[in-house]
Nucleic acid binder design. Structure first.
Lengths: 110, 110
DNA sequence: AGTAAATTACGCACCTTTTCGTAACCACGA
DNA sequence: TCGTGGTTACGAAAAGGTGCGTAATTTACT
C-alpha cells in the first residue's frame, strides 16, 4: 500500500495503522517506556528490520516518541506521544466491536 | 499478513480492516446499496480481482451483506450489515484523530 | 429473420510488484 | 567477544494487476 488513492483522512490513518505490527506496538507502549530490545523480547516474532521500520513509521505519524541517549552501548527509548495515547481508546473500540460481533460471525459461518 | 501472532481481538479486526480498500468500501456502502459495477465506477483504481476478494473478506467478517439476484446478466447487491453500520463511527473517529493531529505532524516534519 | 455485440459478476492463469525475513556488517565499550 | 540499535543486500513469498473465458438475455445492425 505505497501511495494513496484519495485524500481522505481515513485512508491516511489506515496507511499508518495497517498491518500486523502498528496496533500491537501501540499496545506494548501504552504501558510505558520500552527500549528496542524490550519490544523484541515481548513481541517474539517481529524481525529486527521490521521493528525499526514500524517504529519509524509510527514516529513519523506522531504516535511514537523516540529518545536516544548518548553512550555505549547506545540506548534508545520509545514512548507513546500524547497523540498516541489518544489513539488507544479508538483502537480499543474496534477490538470491542470485534468481540461484540463475534456471535454474528459464528452464526454466519453455519 | 496471513496469520495472526496473537489471539487479541485488535489484531483480528486489523486483519480485516488493514489495507487500502476495506475502509474505503465501507464508506461507499454506508450510503446504501451498491452493485459490483457501481463500486468499480466510484472507486476507479481497484481491480475486479481485488474488489471481489475484499468484498468477500468483509462478508466473512459480517460487515457486508451480499445478495444475489437470479437472471441474466447476473445482478449482485452489496450492503452494510447492521454490524457494519456500527463500525462506521469508529472508523470516523480514527479519521478525526488523524485530522486533529495534523498540526502535530506538520511541526515534527520541520 | 438472423447474426453480432453488449451486459454482469465473477474465476483462473500469468506475470509484475511489494513486502518481509535472514544474515552480515557497523560502531563502541565492558 | 558480547550486547545495543541500526543499515544494507539478497531472496523467497505474498499481494495484486491484466486479460481471457463464461453464463443467458436483450439490443443493434443487416
Amino acid at each position: 500500500m505505497k501511495n494513496l488513492v484519495s485524500r481522505c483522512p481515513i485512508e491516511e490513518v489506515m496507511q499508518v495503522l495497517s498491518g500486523r505490527w502498528p496496533t500491537l506496538l501501540i499496545y506494548y507502549l501504552k504501558d510505558g517506556t520500552k527500549r528496542f530490545s524490550d519490544l523484541r523480547r515481548d513481541n517474539l516474532t517481529i524481525s529486527h528490520k521490521m521493528l525499526t521500520a514500524e517504529l519509524r513509521k509510527l514516529e513519523g505519524a506522531g504516535i511514537v516518541q523516540r529518545t536516544e541517549f548518548d553512550g555505549y552501548p547506545l540506548r534508545v527509548e520509545y514512548d507513546l506521544t500524547p497523540e498516541g495515547h489518544k489513539l488507544v481508546p479508538l483502537i480499543d473500540a474496534l477490538g470491542d466491536w470485534w468481540e461484540e460481533t463475534d456471535e454474528v460471525r459464528a452464526v454466519q459461518q453455519v
